[in-house]
Structures are given as C-alpha cells and as structure tokens.
Simulated scan of single mutants.
Amino acid sequence: MTALRFPCRIFETQKRMDDYSAKDMRYGDLTESQLKNDFHLHDVSTRIDPYTLTEITPLRQPHSRFYGSRGAGAKHSVAECAAILFDEMRHLSQAFAIYGPYKYLIEEMITHMQQGEGAPFSSLSLDSALKLQIINDFSEENSTRMLLQNILNRNIDWDKGFFPTSNREKLKEAILSGKLPKFDRIQDTINGLGITVHDTWATYITIKSLYIHSNHYRAQVNYKVQDHFGLDANDILNDKFNLFRFFRIWFVLQRYNRFGFRPFITEMDATININGIRNESVR
C-alpha cells in the first residue's frame, strides 16, 4: 500500500479549461439578416438602432407607426453606436445587481468586454465569493467540501499516517455525487453573482497538501473554476434571456459582424482548509 502524493488533482470536469472553441465564445459571426430573421432581434435598444446606427427618438420607437420615417435621430459611427449600447447595457445591469459587495462586478465585466479584447478576467471579489460559497454550503448531499471531509475521515490509514493511493478514486466519486460550486441561489439573482457567473464551465479540484498527526488531519483543497462571459444561440433563443433587453444588446454587441466584441473567460480561484478527527462523523 502506497501513500497518495500531493499536490494531487482529484477532479476535472469534462469541459476543459481555456476553451475558446465553445459556442458562447463566438463573436462577429452573424449578419443583420441573421440577427433579425433567425433570432428575431428587431427591437434591441431604446437609444439607438444598431443596424442603421441612428438614434431612437420618440417618433422612432420600434413600435411607433412613424418608425423608419426619414429625418429622425442623429446618425453615428459604428464605434459611437457601440459605446451607446454598452452604456445602456451597464444601466440595465443594475436590475440584476441590487445590493451587496458584488453588485459593481457586472459593470466592471461589461467594461472589460468593451475594452479587454477577449483577455481573461479575474477578481479578488469573485475569488472571495467562490470561497464563501464553498465553505458556507452545509448540505450533506451537495457540498463537495463536506463530501470530501467524509471520504478523508473514512479512508485515511491512521496507523501509517497517510491516504492510500488505492482510495484515490473515492475522492473523485465524492465530488461527482455532489454539486459543484456555482452562483445559482435565489440571492444570486439580485446580488450581482448570478448575472456575472451563474453557472460555470470548467472546474478543477486539487488537494494541495494533507497533514496527518495523531488522530487529526488538515487538508488544503484548491478549486479552480472558469466561466464564459458570452452568449450562444441557445441562450438568446431561450425566452428567459430574450425577454430582457440587457441580453439582446449583449448578443448583438458580441455576435453582429459590425461590432464583434469578444467574450472572455472568467477565472476564479479559492483554497479552503478541511479539518477532521479520526472516526468523526460529518453531519
């Protein structure tokens, strides 16, 4: 029987890290005709028409019988139009980020999309939110932290003072039986986390170290998580997304071939400690 050596990656999602080939990472690939006919994106902005680059005035609201009349609204360049759309997107994002320490993140990420040219995004606030989500999850069926704690308690070879390599697969099975950390709780719909991350794309979990002494142990576990700040066709065709002007503007800014603003990968990283005692039952 041999000891498992650390650091040891115990879990990887099937979806890979740094996946720029994913459908929600596409940009600048759709024409005006496709956006209107395939995705029904006629009414995009209340401020400017992204197809004609013309400001929308009271007489040029999409549902007005005067819509399309000549002589209305100022004409803008593509860059000016995009800037107006991004400003409107930032304003609309406030409905998804009403309170709390993370409410400013969505505006920061929108600006990153506008200026970052597809570079990855990271934030100490997101790292902190991920860590708090993991350590505050006390559901026995879903918490990966508690499930790992149970497996460590039951499978450490206490007499020899190590975790056997033969039990490594049990660590992965524990993760698979739970729920990976994500921001899909009720409070996340208004605290800024649901709109910035919500679900996640890829997760790696690594036990960085395992210290065993007498009848106690301490494990240091790292969670590396990535999400995509981008929309695919299924997103915008979903009634839940298409209902909100925020997402319609986002999709046009990302996918319209006159704009083509690049989506990006959001990176999150959190390390937690798991402590246990021999024969301890975790509840």
Rank of each mutant, 00 (worst) to 15 (best):
K224M: 10
K224C: 09
V225H: 09
V225A: 12
V225N: 10
V225C: 11
Q226D: 06
Q226N: 04
Q226G: 00
Q226E: 15
Q226L: 03
D227H: 00
D227G: 02
H228P: 09
H228S: 04
H228T: 00
H228K: 06
H228E: 02
F229V: 05
F229Y: 11
F229G: 05
F229S: 04
F229L: 05
G230D: 04
G230N: 05
L231D: 01
L231E: 01
D232Y: 08
D232F: 07
A233T: 15
A233M: 11
A233W: 11
N234T: 12
N234E: 15
N234H: 12
D235A: 09
D235V: 00
D235G: 08
D235L: 01
D235C: 12
D235M: 03
I236Q: 09
I236D: 13
I236G: 10
L237G: 13
L237V: 11
N238I: 11
N238M: 12
D239S: 12
D239A: 10
D239M: 07
D239Y: 08
D239W: 04
D239C: 05
K240N: 15
K240D: 15
K240L: 11
K240W: 12
K240Y: 12
F241K: 02
N242H: 15
L243S: 12
L243H: 13
L243C: 10
F244W: 06
F244R: 06
F244C: 03
F244G: 00
F244N: 07
R245S: 13
F246Y: 10
F246P: 02
F247C: 03
F247H: 08
R248V: 13
I249H: 09
I249Q: 08
W250A: 09
W250F: 15
V252W: 06
V252L: 06
V252T: 09
L253T: 07
L253C: 08
Q254N: 00
Q254R: 00
Q254M: 01
Q254F: 00
R255V: 14
Y256F: 15
Y256P: 13
N257P: 01
N257E: 05
R258A: 13
R258Q: 14
R258L: 11
F259L: 07
F259D: 06
F259K: 03
G260S: 10
G260M: 08
G260E: 11
F261L: 14
R262L: 09
R262D: 06
R262S: 10
R262C: 10
P263V: 01
P263E: 02
P263L: 02
P263W: 00
F264E: 09
F264L: 10
F264H: 10
I265M: 08
I265V: 13
I265S: 04
I265R: 04
T266Y: 00
T266S: 06
T266D: 02
T266V: 14
T266H: 00
T266E: 06
E267V: 01
E267G: 01
E267N: 09
M268P: 03
M268R: 02
D269K: 02
D269A: 01
